[in-house]
Simulated assay, not measured.
Amino acid sequence: MTVLVASDLDRTLIYSAAALGLDMPDAEAPRLLCVEVYQGKPLSYLTEAAAGLVAELGRTAVFVPTTTRTPEQYRRVHLPGPPPRFAICANGGHLLVDGESDPEWHAAVRGALADSCAPLEEVRAHLTATADPAWLLKERVAEDLFAYLVVERKLLPDEYVKELTVWAEPRGWTVSLQGRKIYAVPKPLTKSAAVAEVKRRAGADEVLTAGDSFLDADLLEAADHAWRPGHGELATAGWTAPHVTAVEEQGVAAGEAIARALSEHASLHWAKARREVIRAVSRGRD
């Protein structure tokens, strides 16, 4: 019996300084562990308590970091515990096995996208044409799979994301606003499809997931049990499902709460599996 834990990273398990949400007095703030450095500067953190829980997940479950980051961006993150054998990057576009992208999986994903949605070039052209330089900071393409804008949130008009969503929907694309980034992602490019493949390869019989954005909704829906933080797109929309637990905490405290829930559930599953193995061995001796 094996449990698979697939968790989103940014704003679910790990947090930038701007997303920490440390609204308590400084003397009461939790100790933090930096897990990512970018251009020589610390970038992403989790609490020390969450770090211990994540390390435990690596020992009691098939722990699969599941992210919209590109493989290059993911490799900057050094989570506590044993290095995960599997990781999902580019929202499911890359399935990393022992740190390397599986070429057959990547080719299959590209084939599916070519057959079912508007081309990336059309979407990128629309983003470039409609983004206002007054609030646009950067325009990027990730792995030739999807596009995103980095924006100044304070200047971003409320209606822009809504109008972009209406435009993208009939073209087979999803729009998601996460922090300072507006993502445009093909609907067939999903984290859940990649998790299903890892489940098959690992022989897992239970799947636990966590995430905070609309791009994580399919990941949460496909799980046996799932968790989302008290912040993010899903929380703002009030999104839920019968098997999804919405933790009350926000910011890095939510990351710790989710890590604790995942670890406790995985540990119970592991203990149950261990007892069944012991009983099976005992029956064999009898």
Results as ranks from 00 to 15, higher is better:
V3K: 01
D8K: 02
R11Y: 07
R11K: 14
I14S: 01
A17M: 09
A18H: 12
G21Q: 07
D23L: 10
D23P: 02
M24C: 14
D26P: 13
A27F: 11
P30C: 05
P30M: 05
V35Y: 02
Y38C: 11
Q39N: 13
Q39E: 13
S44W: 08
S44C: 12
A49P: 06
A49K: 11
A50W: 07
A51P: 01
L53G: 04
V54T: 01
E56H: 12
R59Y: 04
R69K: 13
P71T: 04
Y74K: 05
R75A: 14
R75Q: 13
L79Q: 05
L79A: 05
L79S: 05
G81N: 06
G81C: 06
G81T: 03
I88W: 06
A90W: 03
G92V: 03
H94C: 10
G99Y: 03
E100S: 14
D102Y: 04
P103C: 08
W105K: 00
A107D: 13
A108I: 10
D115V: 10
S116E: 11
C117V: 09
E121A: 15
E121R: 12
T130N: 09
T130F: 03
A131I: 09
W135S: 10
L136F: 00
L137N: 13
K138Y: 12
L145H: 01
V150R: 01
V150I: 09
V150D: 02
V151G: 06
E152Y: 07
E152M: 12
R153A: 10
D158P: 07
D158K: 13
K162F: 09
K162M: 09
E163R: 14
V166A: 14
V166K: 11
S176T: 13
L177G: 12
R180H: 11
K181P: 04
I182H: 02
I182Y: 00
I182G: 00
A184T: 11
V185A: 08
P188T: 00
L189C: 06
V195H: 02
E197Q: 10
R201M: 14
R201E: 09
D205T: 15
E206Q: 14
L208P: 00
T209P: 03
A210G: 05
L215G: 09
L215Y: 13
A223S: 02
A223C: 02
H225Y: 12
H225Q: 15
A226H: 08
P229D: 05
G230F: 04
G232A: 03
E233C: 08
T236Q: 15
T240W: 08
A241C: 06
P242A: 10
T245H: 05
T245K: 07
T245P: 02
V247T: 07
E249G: 05
A253H: 11
I258P: 01
H265R: 15
W270K: 11
A271W: 07
A273W: 04
R274Y: 08
R275P: 11
E276K: 13
V277C: 11
V277W: 10
R279K: 15
V281Y: 14
R283E: 14
R283T: 13
G284R: 15
D286Q: 15
